[in-house]
Each structure stands twice: as structure tokens, then as C-alpha cells.
Design a protein around this nucleic acid. Structure first.
Lengths: 204, 204
DNA sequence: CGCTAGCCTAGAACGAGTTCCAGTGACTCG
DNA sequence: CGAGTCACTGGAACTCGTTCTAGGCTAGCG
């Protein structure tokens, strides 16, 4: 059965890939039920048929695990969004539309969203690489939505970063019940006006 | 010694007020040293000369404690900032200047900032009232910096909310080492352009 | 003065994240 | 085939947030 090589840079064998998937799946399932607190490492280990020590070998902490779960979910979402690109014309509107779609997707699994976002913002330096990956994925989603012809300008990238900030923070306030969906929509639309503001050539 | 009355709405006696202060002080001191993890409830209790159970009577969780600590620090900062209002002319520049000042103040105690911000974003629904207070304080600081003559429009309030989102999230990325101070400055300045965009009458 | 009601103290106890350890099993190399 | 290596297993152990218990102190009141 398939030689299990491991050339330095963390190449997983099939078995290991399968284990990893089982773990991520169990994590997402538990998170969907009861959010951050419901993702208990012992239970994740049990549900994915893996010893606790092994779970920790794959994901060195609960936060790592949940951030990886978020990566996974974001990838799905990115593909889904790609398949149905925004219908709006203006970049700002396109981005706002896309983010609100993503938002509604998260709404369907609020506990899961809670777990992932809490992990993301609670992550310390030891999780930076993984959090960065999530950030890059989010950036990619937004840039896709903008539908640019050329590569973005520095100004536009700043605007995108600010949009990401707003997106995360708005998500948190919604998840902790301090803002309504309507509120979030307004905030997203407000921040997206920055895109028009930083459009490169003709519009001013 | 001073009658200890308690009229329904959590009025503290002098002794109790003193205890509360000692606790907050110990919390801030420990946080300054080693951030979120260094604030250990047993140690806070010991350092403030109070039993563990009492600590929990005053602050029902570590997150409550740290959010209260943040309230405290923000109040200080608000007063400090009030004393030296921003020198810039334009509202957007004034807000950016003020936020960068606040940012540099936090830079001086990065561990403390870390602890407070992590607590803030990790807070769940049970801490909503306290988190809301922090949010209102932040809003007040920004509105002060804008130096408006009249009360802000709904549009301006949206812009302020987005600025707050950006502020918190940028702070997190800086604290977790994923963005430089220069980066944060750019983001703050970028988002502050929303203020010009939402100015009420003459400018457009 | 003695009673009652609260708040406080000291410390045990419990739960979940994390670490550690001894043993086992599978695959590789000789 | 035999030996070594390394990932995996099962479970104990440790830490720290949180809760609980028993008892003591103060303040007001009859």
C-alpha cells in the first residue's frame, strides 16, 4: 500500500490525510452544535477515532485546530462564491454583495462561525502562519469579487485590508449579539465605499 | 465607619470600592508583565489581598475582569486625549491622529494591550453589557476627535463604527505580529477617509 | 447582649486544555 | 527474518479557570 514517504516539508500519507480530514470534520461538527466550548479536544479525538496525543500532533492546540477548520470552510466558500459571481456592476457593490452572501452562509451555522471566529481572534503569535493563510484567503475572495482587470494598486490593497478588518470585527459584534444583521449590512456597505474612493483612473 | 448601604443598583461601600480598585490594579499589573496568560485568577486574588471567591463575586470571569480593566484604561486614555486635542484641521486627520496617539500609548504596554484586546474579542454574550461600555467609550473618543459642531449624522455614525472595527482588528493583527505599525497607520488613515466621505453639508 | 443576614476567607473540588509516558504496531533497511 | 524507527494508542498527570463548602467577621436589630 502506497509508500509513505515524508520529504521534510510535512507531506502526509494517504492514511494521515484521511486522519486529518476526519479530525477537521469532527471539529466542524462539534462546533456546529455548540460553538467554541463544544469543541472539546478529547471529544474531537474520540469522534475522529484518534488518540488525544495524535490529535495534538496534527494540531498543536485547540486554536490551531479551529483556525485550520476555518481555512477549510473558507476554501469551500471561496469555490462556492466563485461559481456564482456577484451580479452587481460597481466593484464596491460587488464586494458588498459577496460579503453579505458569505455572511448569510455563516448565519446558517452560527455556532460554527462563532467557534472559528473566536479562535481566529484569540490566536496568539504561535498561530500567525495559519491566521495569515486565512487572511490571504479572505483577501482573495474580496479581490475576486472586485473583478479587477489589472492587479490592484497599493491603495486598493489598503482598502481591502480595511474591509477585512471591518468584516471580522462586524462578524464578532454580530456573533456576540451586539449588532443586528441590518447593522452589519450597513457597516459592510459603508466600508465598501472605500473601494470607489480608491479606484485607479477615471472616477475620482 | 461609614454606613454600608446598598440601594438595589450595586452601590459599593468604600471598602468595596477599594477592593475593586486593588483588583483592577493587580490585573493591570499582571497583564503588563505577561499578557492574557499572565493574568491568573489565583494570582490576581492574592496580589489584591482578596479571596478567590471574592474576586469572582466582583468579576464573574477572567474575561469580565479584563474587559473591566480595559474600561478603566480607556477612561484614563480618554481624559489624557481630551487634555491634548488633535492639532490637525480636517476631521479625518484629527481622528487618525488621535487613534495613532492611542495606539502609541498601547505600544508602551503591549502585553497589557494584548490581554485587554484578547479578552474583548473573546467575550461572549454574557459580557455584552461591559463590552458595549467599552465600545461607547471608544465611540466617544472618536467623536471627540472629530470636533463636530452639531451632533453626528447617521452616516457619520456608520463611519465611526467602521473606524472602530478597523481599529480593533488592526490592533489585533499588530499584537499578534502580523502587521507592522506602519501598516496599522496606513489602515487607520485609509479608513478615516470615510469621514470626509460622510461629511454633512458643504464638502462632497 | 445575643440573633440574623451578608460578605469574606481558606481551601477543596471539578472540568477541560495540554503534556507526558510506556507500550504497540507498521514500515524500512540490513 | 531481525532490528530499528517512528507514528499511534491509552491513559495518567498537571495547570488554571471556575464552582462549592464550611466557617468567621461585621452590622444592624430586638
Amino acid at each position: 500500500m502506497t509508500a509513505e514517504v515524508k520529504p521534510a516539508a510535512m507531506q502526509l500519507t494517504e492514511r494521515q490525510e484521511a486522519r486529518r480530514r476526519r479530525i477537521l470534520h469532527a471539529s466542524a461538527r462539534l462546533a456546529s452544535r455548540g460553538g467554541f466550548d463544544a469543541v472539546q479536544m478529547r471529544e474531537v479525538a474520540e469522534n475522529s477515532g484518534v488518540a488525544l496525543g495524535t490529535l495534538y500532533r496534527y494540531f498543536p492546540s485547540k486554536v490551531h485546530l479551529l483556525v485550520a477548520t476555518m481555512q477549510d470552510q473558507l476554501q469551500h466558500m471561496h469555490e462556492t462564491l466563485r461559481k456564482r459571481p456577484p451580479t452587481e456592476e460597481e466593484p464596491a457593490a460587488r464586494v458588498a454583495q459577496t460579503l453579505m452572501r458569505a455572511f448569510r452562509a455563516l448565519q446558517r451555522e452560527p455556532h460554527l462561525a462563532d467557534a472559528m471566529v473566536r479562535a481566529l481572534t484569540f490566536a496568539d503569535r504561535s498561530v500567525s502562519p495559519e491566521v495569515d493563510t486565512v487572511s490571504r484567503l479572505t483577501t482573495a475572495i474580496i479581490l475576486d469579487a472586485m473583478g479587477l482587470d489589472d492587479s490592484p494598486t497599493a491603495e486598493q490593497l489598503s482598502a481591502v485590508r480595511v474591509i477585512e478588518h471591518t468584516w471580522h470585527s462586524a462578524l464578532i459584534t454580530w456573533l456576540s449579539g451586539r449588532a443586528s444583521i441590518a447593522q452589519v449590512k450597513i457597516d459592510i456597505e459603508t466600508v465598501c465605499r472605500l473601494i470607489d474612493l480608491t479606484a485607479p483612473a477615471p472616477a475620482g
